[in-house]
Amino acid sequence: MKKVWERFGVVLLAGGAAAVLLTLAAIILFLALRGAPALSWEFITAFPRRGMTEGGIFPALVGTLYLVVGTAIIAVPLGVGAAVYLSEYARGGTWVRIVRVGVNSLAGVPSIVFGLFGLAFFVKALGIGVSLLSGVLTLGLLVLPVVIRAAEEALRAVPQEFREGAYALGATRWQVTRSVVLPVAMPGIITGAILALGRAAGETAPIMFTAAAYYTPRLPRSPLDEVMALPYHLYVMATESTFFWKTRHLQYGTALVLLCLVLVFYLAAALIRARIRRRKRW
C-alpha cells in the first residue's frame, strides 16, 4: 500500500517536470510552425515597407546585433574585471560583502526600472538622447551582474593548487591571474558572457525609452542614432501598429527569428559548458 503511494508520488513529480518540458516544446514548436512560412531571404534582408505591413526585419535585426555587441563591449570587460577583483584580489572583507550585496540587488531590479533609469540618466541627465549608446549603456548595466556572477563562479572553480604553484615560483598576483587562473576559467567566463548577451538580445523594456525606434528608414550610422530592435519591433507590430491583425504572419516570423537568435546563444553556452565538463582533468 505504502509502495503504491510512493510510486504515485514519483509519477506526480515526473508529471510536473514533463509538463514543464511540454510547455517549452509547445511554445517553440508553435512559433516555429507558424513563423516558418514568413521566413525568406527577403524577410531577413529587407526593410519594412508600406507602414510595416510588408517587407522584412533587416534594420531590427541589425539594430539588435549592434545592441548586443555594444552591450558586450561595456559589460564583459567590466564584469570580468569586477569578478577578478572579488575572487583574486579582495578575497573576503567588508567591501567585498557590500559589493556582492550590491551586485545581487542589481540583478533583481526589474528591467523596466533600468529603462526608467536609462531615460533619466543617460538620455536626459547626460544628454545622450534616445540612441544606440544610451540603450547599450542601460543594457550593459542590466547584464553586468549576470556577467560578474558567472565569471566569479568560473574563477572560484579554478583549483587553489594552481595558484599556489604559480605563487611559489615567484609570480605576482597579476601574473598568476593572467597566465594560470584566467586561462583555466576562460570557458566558464565565456559561457556566462554568452548567456548575459542572450538576455540582452531579448530585452525590450530597458530599450523602450532609451534606444528603440518604431521605424528608421536607414541603418544607424553613429552610436547617437536611434535603432530598431527585434523585441521592440515585435511588440510594436503586435500591439500598436495600425493594422496589427493584418500583419500576424510577419509577427510570427519576427518572433521566430528573435527566438532562434536567443536560442543560439543559450545552446552555444550549453555546448561550451558540456565541453568543459568533458575535458576537465583536475
Binding site: E161, E164, A166, A168, G170, A171, R281
Partner: peptide, 30 residues
Amino acid sequence: GLRRRIGMVFQKPNPFPKSVFDNVAYGPRI
C-alpha cells in the same frame, strides 16, 4: 625575488593545465 630563490613542491602534483614544456618554462618566463 624570495620565491624565485626558494622553490616549492606540493602534496598533490599540481602541474598547470599547459604542456610539459610550458610548465617548466613558466618560472623563467615570468
